[in-house]
Design a protein around this nucleic acid. Sequence first.
DNA 1: TCCGATTTGGCTCTCCGGATGCACGTCAGT
DNA 2: ACTGACGTGCATCCGGAGAGCCAAATCGGA
Lengths: 358, 358
Amino acid sequence: MSVTNPVSALIQPLGEMPPESVVFGSTDAMHALRERLAKIAGANVPVLIQGESGTGKDIIARMIHVSSPWKTGPWVKVNCPAIPGTLLESELFGYEKGAFTGAYGSKPGRVEMAHRGTLFLDEISELDMALQSKLLQLLQDGQFCRIGAQEDKRVEVRVVCATNRKLEEEIINGTFRSDLFYRINVVNLHIPALRERSSDIPQLVSYFIEHYNRRFNGRAPMPSAELMKALMRYHWPGNIRELENLMKRYVILGSEDSISGDLRPHEPDLFSADIPVDGQVSLKKITRQAVRELERKIILKVLQHHHWNRKQAAKALNISYRALLYKIRDAGLPSNRTPRSGAHEDAQAAVNETAAAD
Amino acid sequence: MSVTNPVSALIQPLGEMPPESVVFGSTDAMHALRERLAKIAGANVPVLIQGESGTGKDIIARMIHVSSPWKTGPWVKVNCPAIPGTLLESELFGYEKGAFTGAYGSKPGRVEMAHRGTLFLDEISELDMALQSKLLQLLQDGQFCRIGAQEDKRVEVRVVCATNRKLEEEIINGTFRSDLFYRINVVNLHIPALRERSSDIPQLVSYFIEHYNRRFNGRAPMPSAELMKALMRYHWPGNIRELENLMKRYVILGSEDSISGDLRPHEPDLFSADIPVDGQVSLKKITRQAVRELERKIILKVLQHHHWNRKQAAKALNISYRALLYKIRDAGLPSNRTPRSGAHEDAQAAVNETAAAD
DNA sequence: TCCGATTTGGCTCTCCGGATGCACGTCAGT
DNA sequence: ACTGACGTGCATCCGGAGAGCCAAATCGGA
């Protein structure tokens, strides 16, 4: 999982991908995933890949590409959060001369570049509303429009999206369009977290050690049984990427001690709202958390209903304006929001276009 | 003008539209809708289409267009929320050279492009007030004015609007002009949600399966009776679009298991974040209620785990013994004593009995 | 039957988090 | 410049949660 510059490097070195057996391991869930992938690769339908950060979503996406009929076509990856709002649109859809100050020439967007190939949108949850709409149109009828252009263009692209968040929640929060979700969620690949398939860890470990031994001319031996056990017990918040980096360090430093310190055991999950009968769990904290959560949902809903007019919302909620602000703040909701359409700040970027949704 | 181009794209492959029988199904409400549509298509009056997201408002709108006398004219669709505020105006009405910085040339708007054709405004509730006014003028006397232009222009367009919100409420909220509403609401087509016409689902399912079998060279059989029942029970928040995508997935993946997981029945969440949109229902009350509910569950569980020993339970919950008693009381939990040798005719025992004992 | 332990309810008192009102500054539209 | 909505800081106030105390009820055991 070479982390390259998110946007450049269009045609990525596919050769660096680890062999299939390593990617998938031997867990049931991953077997199912592999089969599913084989089935869907050939059909030109959008794919949504969901999985925690570091689970290798980009590798899966690339595998979809190379096993599809468009494998000879371009492979274009766009890492959405890496590009600030306004630029992302021009990056994706391109622009015509004079579309905005500084646009002296015209430029094709990534979407066009991906014609007859695969367009991979990483972290799609980060797209702002306006771009979501444009993307939706692209998915609905294969059309899009450069910024500042008069007419629509038509492309054929296979779209693969990835995210590490639960889009369902984003929809409830109002930060993701539900119609876009239904559109990209035709096929859903959920990649389990590494800790959920710890039986694959030995295989991965040996692969990485071998790989880095070769690359660094190392002689690091297989880890001891105890260390392997520790590796399997660890909960890997960074998933495979973390494992890979740890193995890299192990090979370079060459001693087990140098990494065993990082494997501190399973910290107590503070957010498990469930009712852990066993240990002491302050009821206060749980209820507090729950109240926050609930308030957040309600406030969000009411605010949306009132077009983010806080005064009205506060009145509707029967709390003081000031209190609502408090709650909004510590609910982590956007504290500055232009009233409509969710699109803020960019004065003049996005132009044009029908985009879909009914 | 280059109108033809954008519009060429807009003259969409209507061939891809499902046959009428599928769009409408056999529900009474949809029959009525079809008749109504036939009646109004020919008259040059504005139409307002209301229906949840994904119910196929755009298809209906297109059907209006193709069955109207202007079917040879352009079909122009504008998705309002896709375009941030200021730009939408130039997009809709066009601008003259020099109207604002960056306007080096003049540009016709979508309204002009739709001359002698149909203009479809999707999600019209997202229009801001200023544009609502301009649109109102257009509807009233067929005139509009490019940004920066001196004189008005005149066009003949059939205007069709769609929204998934209740405009009546928007009016009350002051976010939609009532006069515009009356103007576009001359004919009102309300499209029922899919869940409200579940008897159409089998027909739709078979249509989609056939369609996608053909497109993907699939061999997916009709779903089993149980699956069909599940499909009809599901509440389809994404309406037809969701159904379509689910069927797509079914055809591609080829197994019922691959989709049955998505049909989980309408679970009302742990403590649902429901209602408050309607009237002003205080937030406090709701949260209070929710907290009670949650506390009740937790306390019950902890108590059971501790064999109804309140002292231990209180300690486990990190609250004072006394406080636990309070909570137990106003959670309506059995406040009786060791239920063992009940020489006591407690009204509400019922619960514990067997539980305690040791 | 009596004594101590445990449980429970009722009653205050205190304390703190959250809610409020007010003042002031900012920003955008007019 | 004026207005209205929004954001922030500050002093204040309120109510509910918690703690402490006491009395009554009940049980176990002698």
